[in-house]
Design a protein around this nucleic acid. Structure first.
Length: 257
DNA sequence: ATGGCTACGATCCGTAGA
């Protein structure tokens, strides 16, 4: 199975690029974030015509997540159980024998802000949710925009970013708490090129300078990690006219015999 | 030098992203 995640920063603007990317990259499952639209306006028909079914949790203007799949999506679940939140950031579904959780983690704005406190509370709630999911499903994938660069090697200029939101100690501790549940960062299962990132600021010609962060991740349960054969970032869509500021990440794993 | 884009939904600027 080839599983991908992409923060498209508006499904309406990015639909042509998404259809093109689906045709070339051919993922079996794709987690989408930052749809910025209500579920009723999600382009279900166009994606269906491209061979993908979809489940969607949308809202106007902000957030919004979806899972696309070439094979049936079952057991759809929304949000984080027990965590009161208006923001549409989580959707889960089962594809074949894999439980897929698609996440759009909060940005956090600035260390110490209300949004930062919300981000940390949100991560704690996500951890409880994923711990429960792991009890039920040994084949679990959690893919999305985590808005955390786990280590300094995931940051183009660690000195400049030191202590800032996305790299601060409490955020990285929240990330490590997810790993402590038994989840693996699929990207780090393999030798990787240095300075591989998944997000680049629209300003300051950041993409041309490769001034980015690796904040989009695919976490795998131990059983899935054992059968994972690759995990990469596809920079190609970031090079197009009017791109998303994020690039897709893709992991591939084999099915059990 | 603390900005610099981009998208959205409201107007012709404010909010948010990261």
């Amino acid at each position: 199975m080839r599983l991908a995640t992409w923060n498209v920063n508006s499904i309406k603007v990015r639909l042509p690029q998404l259809l093109e990317w689906l045709a070339t990259a051919r993922p079996d499952v794709l987690c989408l974030q930052e749809l910025k639209t209500e579920a009723a306006k999600f382009p279900r028909g166009e994606l269906e015509a491209a061979g993908y079914g979809s489940v969607v949790s949308g809202q106007k203007t902000y957030n919004g997540v979806a899972i696309l799949s070439r094979t049936p999506l079952d057991g759809v679940a929304f949000d984080i159980p027990g965590f009161a939140d208006e923001q549409k950031r989580v959707i889960a579904a089962t594809v074949q024998d894999v439980r897929v959780v698609c996440v759009y983690c909060p940005n956090g704005q600035a260390v110490g802000s209300d949004k930062y406190e919300y981000k940390l509370r949100w991560f704690a709630a996500l951890g409880s949710y994923l711990a429960a999911e792991l009890q039920k499903q040994s084949r679990l994938a959690v893919a999305g925009d985590f808005n955390v660069a786990p280590e300094d090697r995931d940051v183009h200029d660690p000195k400049a970013w030191e202590g800032q939101v996305h790299v601060s100690g409490p955020e990285r501790a929240a990330w490590r708490a997810l790993l402590a549940l038994g989840l693996k960062d699929s990207f780090r299962l393999f030798e990787q090129p240095e300075k591989t990132f998944s997000w680049w600021d629209y300003r300051m010609m950041a993409f041309r300078r490769n001034a980015g962060l690796r904040i989009d991740h695919i976490l795998l349960s131990e059983e899935l990690a054992r059968s994972c054969t690759s995990s990469t970032v596809d920079k190609a869509p970031r090079k197009l006219e009017r791109p998303s500021d994020h690039a897709p990440a893709i992991a591939e794993f084999t099915s059990p015999r």
